[in-house]
Design a protein around this nucleic acid. Structure first.
Lengths: 139, 139
DNA sequence: AAATATTTGCAACGATGTTTCTTTTTTTTA
DNA sequence: TAAAAAAAAGAAACATCGTTGCAAATATTT
């Protein structure tokens, strides 16, 4: 069976044109995608609302995760296998390339532990690095 | 001279009612402020556009800095003295309290160094911690 | 293949942020 | 300190982003 269909079924999502196209985009893209990228690149046109709802359901199911960026726009990227409905485990660093503007998950770079004064409780650490990505650096 | 007026003059900003009120808000608040907080709490009413422009000019001058949050809203907080026009040096960790929702600069907690594979170049590291703030933790 | 459940598209809405232009306020200078 | 020049504020219009309610279309179940 088509791996895209497989992923959708596995997550109890009905298989629709929009979901297949959007998931396919994520599978074939190496960086993170913003809502606008998705709306433009799905081939056929889907309503903005549909895109929002699809992204939301993918996040809920643990198929993709959100990446906060300093310019106030949310990006989305595929999760690794450990994520599932109601629990994400994306403890890696994100890189925003200041040359090409793309955002990447650095899956092998684990977020460093942050030690706060004892009056605080740490629940989750989010690290976004601004820098130059691999492919821009080799040009 | 009034310290608020002093700061404005020092940064080559003309001294206006709006700027004084907004700067005063920052000086008297211990957490970070969102645009909406500012619009509501300046006492007299200022146009939204004025608030946006004031915040922008404060950021440009190095008086305040922005804090990215995962819910896609920008918060602003006072810079320490080393910042100036065109150069910010706010290398501290930010905490978003999941109980009270406020955002704080942890000025004493320096952002940890992040080591990336050698194909990458690191320019800037942004760390946002989700957790419980001091005052919520003591209740 | 029909019945049911789910998803889509559309319209409308609210919040956020920007731009242009005119009026008002602040600063300069004379 | 009054007039001239510069800067900022306010108003209106517009663009983008994200959400909600509802009717039509599409998937899934039986």
């Amino acid at each position: 069976m088509d791996s895209i269909v497989h992923i959708l079924k596995q997550n109890n999502l009905s298989v629709t044109e929009g979901r297949r196209r959007i998931l396919s985009l994520f599978l074939s893209s190496n960086g993170a995608l913003a809502h606008a990228d998705i709306e433009k690149n799905t081939g056929s046109h889907f309503d903005r609302v549909t895109v929002y709802r699809t992204l939301q359901s993918f996040v809920d199911k643990g198929i993709i995760h959100t990446i906060p960026t300093s310019d106030n726009s949310i990006k989305y990227a595929l999760c690794k296998d450990e994520c599932g409905e109601g629990h994400h485990h994306d403890h890696h660093v994100h890189l925003v390339c200041s040359r090409c503007g793309n955002t990447f998950c650095l899956d092998d770079v684990v977020t460093p532990a942050v030690k706060l004064p004892h009056e605080y409780i740490v629940q989750q650490v989010e690290v976004v690095v601004k820098g130059i990505c691999r492919s821009c650096n080799h040009k």
